Amino acid sequence: MGINELNINLGERILEINVITYNIHHGKGIDKQVDLYRIAEVIDKSDADLVGLNEVDKHFSKRSLYEDQISWLANQLNMEHAFSPSISIKSKNSTKVRQYGNALLSRYPIVTKKSHSFNYIPGLVEGRSLLDVAIQINKQLFQVNVTHLSLNPFLHKMQTDFIVSKHNKNPHPIIIMGDWNMRPGSRGWRKLTRSFQDAWYTEGIGAGHTYPSHRPRTRLDYIFVSQNVKVVEAKVLTNMSKASDHLPLTARLLY
């Protein structure tokens, strides 16, 4: 669908943006099958303009047939893409670096992209990172982040503090999404919602549980937006729950 330019009072024009955040579990569904076609179908049917993805493999291992998953999805869906490695492994038997991390698909031009490493204790805990991308929508820049935070409370706090301080004086509208490994009302959630809107908390109906996909009972996946972005709707998609161990979360935004 893309962005709709809506005419409102006094001839003012606003942008409508559909976003989705989805932990794809390297394409492995609850039936233990790795099938990127299912992931692509979920994204395609969501009609999203911006897609934040977690647990994406890039030549990582046999579990995903060494596929560059984000390039495959971008080609399949005809979208631009960016990738942020949380884990990078050099192999003696290949010139390709084995990577795993966060990614973004976009229907609109990606102007800049940067990866911030959250590997404060290399080798002791799973690597984490923040994908930081600037998107050009008409003449407006949007700052879009995708992340997957640590289960360790100390590291989670450091990562959350970094994200909040990074955007403290950002003049552009901001969208931050991903698997946050936290619960609503937690210390990290309270810190984030002092600066940003939780899309589900603002406009979602019900609990908003996204994990586990076959019987969701926890809200781990979030879309946060700056105060100058209006959240119109937030939904959890349940129509293809077997495609991953998480359900995708979507939000319709106006700016």
Rank of each mutant, 00 (worst) to 15 (best):
Y22T: 02
I70S: 09
M182G: 05
T112N: 14
N102H: 09
R217Y: 06
Q136P: 06
L53R: 03
R217S: 12
V225S: 05
P212K: 07
G204Q: 03
S106V: 10
L151H: 11
N170K: 12
V125K: 07
V236L: 10
K114Y: 14
P248V: 08
D68Q: 12
I20H: 00
A103F: 01
P122G: 10
D245T: 09
S86G: 15
I137N: 03
D198C: 00
R128D: 10
D47Q: 15
Y37A: 14
Y120S: 05
D198Y: 00
D245N: 14
I3K: 10
V111G: 02
H148V: 01
M158Q: 14
I223D: 08
Y201T: 03
F196T: 09
D44I: 00
P153T: 02
V229S: 04
D161E: 15
L36R: 04
S186Y: 09
D49I: 09
G27V: 02
I20Q: 05
W189G: 03
E55I: 09
L105M: 09
I110F: 03
M158K: 15
S115N: 15
W189R: 06
T218R: 07
H116D: 12
G52I: 04
D198R: 00
T21I: 10
R63Y: 08
Y211M: 05
K235V: 11
I175R: 05
Y108W: 15
Y201F: 09
P184H: 06
T250N: 12
Q159I: 08
F142E: 01
Y22R: 04
E12D: 10
Y22L: 04
M182K: 06
A82H: 11
W180A: 09
S86K: 10
R190G: 02
H167T: 02
P153L: 01
T202M: 05
F60S: 07
D68L: 11
K169L: 13
T160V: 13
G127I: 00
A82N: 11
K58H: 00
K113T: 14
I43H: 12
